[in-house]
Write a protein that binds this DNA or RNA. Structure first.
Lengths: 213, 213, 213, 213
DNA sequence: GATGAATGAGGATTCATTCAT
DNA sequence: AATGAATGAATCCTCATTCAT
């Protein structure tokens, strides 16, 4: 009879995992609309179609929900970033992959990005007690970019710059891009902003021709 | 005796104005440390050395304090930006002035920038009902940059790019710079990050020599 | 085949009875440590090694568990009291048996006594709706003492006092003794407190020699 | 103008003190009826005729209210005990004063005694983290009794017993008396129980005539 | 104007109890 | 019979705001 219990346990575990995911998605939705402080747990529960108490079967606190919602998505984005960048060869293509993935993600995971762009950074600025897991998730793709730049420099494909600072610049510019899109501030003929960023970076990183000043 | 009343009225008004400023400074301080939601009005009052009720003589609500604190400083920064950029001639110097002013401001008005970087943007992302005054304050310097780029393009000093997108890029990169400094993530040999940003922008905007890709 | 069912039924009933007992013992343990209000049913279940829901197969509510835990032990103590007091002849020995049994019980059933001393009395004081079963359990041994005193008076072995009041005094003094032992407030040379109580009672109940005031 | 402020401050402070007292009395009332766990702060507030939040202007937590209510009354009782016992000479009178005061207090401060008898002891039994202030208040009168007995022994007025154990016995017997009265279990012809306790103690402490066993 | 006591709505969290499996 | 996920009522406490002094 052991196998029956095992199967039922599995069913249960799967069900629990689904519940958890549903809760996280509901949470993302509400957090994205109202921010952490303005969101109340009851709304998350309602959105997920469960009772308030149920939420606490899956998460220890409102804050845990928040961080879990972020972490899950951040890891997925990091994984996708790695895959996409690995899938192409030249640094230019890798760079484009990094940026374009984010533009796609923006469409499919708007809630996550609203949270990420809006509050995670604020938390860091206030010196929140984020666990290292967290900081890592926030920086992993930045490291990927830095490695890419270092390699390109080594091959002489781009001029000698600090690879980390270059990565940081990409991150900042892309963040700006995402924000503006979320705010609906970008031009109607979408894509020109991405193209501009790429253009800016290609120009500025190209091996020197003559000094520009 | 009318003049006496007038003088006393003036005195009163000046006193009131000072109170208001003191309150705003206290508010900035507390908001910067704890963020909007975690800050309570009593702490602001205490920091300003007045009673809780007094705060409500000068501001209608906690939110009004927050926004007023932001607005006052944002306007000052915008004014200073205009002055510094007007004081020099070349687009390169203007650009450097824009960035360096912010680095200075970072030292002297850390609280404001923590607020600005951390929460005002989040509010916007959440589609807060900020009055146009705000959006304007938040974007004024960006427009200044755009105008500067437009002029430089007209004079052929930089290659033909969208001046607004260029301005936006500057804003984004500088924001990243400020954030990293606030987080204490910048290198010990300060200034290399500013230099990098300038270098990046000079390169990418220089009139074309040969296309880099 | 009826006998098989009967046996199985018996087995079942025995098993159930054991479960019930195990639950009660677990409950006593937790209630004694944390008190009624601070104890939660889950902890009792965990301590008994069953699931939370199972507890409700054996008891209707948390309060029922509490009272059942008390009642079972109270009845055992009453039974033991009767046996021990019956086993000896003189009122002095009976009195000593009453007290010493409680000191033993204190060691072996600390949990029960913590509950009894701490909360059952409080419940009564608050005028709780305890059924008469309870009041009876709480008072049975007191009645035994009263009967004993009445008999001793009849035989002229002790002076003429109200037997019920004397019983009450014994109960109160013994309760104090137990409390102090549970609190660890008794002297290191254990037993002097018991001896003192006995001594006090012997003196005060001795047939009059000359009046002491 | 300073004096005006001073007076107003005094008024305010007096008012505050009265409010505090009213809250404590309301709290005593509710706690006595329902016990600590079953009492909710809102009911205390309602009974005192203030809003829920107001309670927290005077006390940090529900527990603080509870302890404050106990402490205030315990101290008063201790003070009265000292006064009454000082007012008479013989140990017999002092003993009677101790007991009779408690019987009076029972009438006028029933709530306090319900709390004291019911829950403070339970808290101690559960090893609560009561501050020493607390333990002291609970034991002060016991010490008074012990001193009294020690003095009487020194003067040869009572036989040689351990004064602390004698004090403890008095405390225990008196507690029993109070409890029974609160429970309404005492005889209609009130006072016989007090008399019995006194009688018991007088007999048992009288200088030896001949050994009673 | 200034104060700070009073208010009471609001929210996170707990936990006894139920019930589908 | 046993389980444990789900429920949702209940409660402590906070804090923005008001208002009598």
């Amino acid at each position: 009879m052991g196998w029956l219990l095992l199967i039922m346990n599995n069913r249960r575990k799967e069900g629990a995992e689904m519940r958890r995911s549903a809760l996280l998605q509901a949470a993302r939705c509400v957090f994205a609309q109202r921010g952490f402080a303005e969101t109340n747990v009851e709304d998350i529960a309602a959105k997920a179609g469960v009772a308030k108490g149920t939420v606490y079967l899956y998460f220890n606190s409102k804050e845990h929900i928040y961080l879990a919602a972020f972490l899950e998505d951040a890891r997925r984005l990091n994984r996708l970033t790695r895959e996409r960048m690995d899938a192409v060869q030249s640094w230019q293509d890798k760079l484009r992959a990094y940026i374009e993935l984010r533009m796609e993600y923006l469409e499919s995971h708007q809630e996550f990005l609203r949270i990420y762009l809006a509050e995670i950074r604020s938390m860091m600025l206030r010196g929140a007690r984020l666990c290292s897991e967290f900081v890592h998730a926030a920086c992993e793709s930045e490291m990927l970019l830095a490695q890419m730049f270092a390699a390109a420099i080594a091959k002489g494909e781009i001029r000698k710059v600090d690879p980390e600072l270059a990565a940081v610049a990409v991150v900042d510019l892309t963040r700006g891009l995402m924000e503006r899109r979320l705010l609906g501030w970008c031009r109607p003929e979408g894509g020109c902003d991405v193209q501009f960023e790429l253009d800016l970076l290609y120009h500025s990183l190209a091996p020197a021709c003559k000094e520009p000043r």
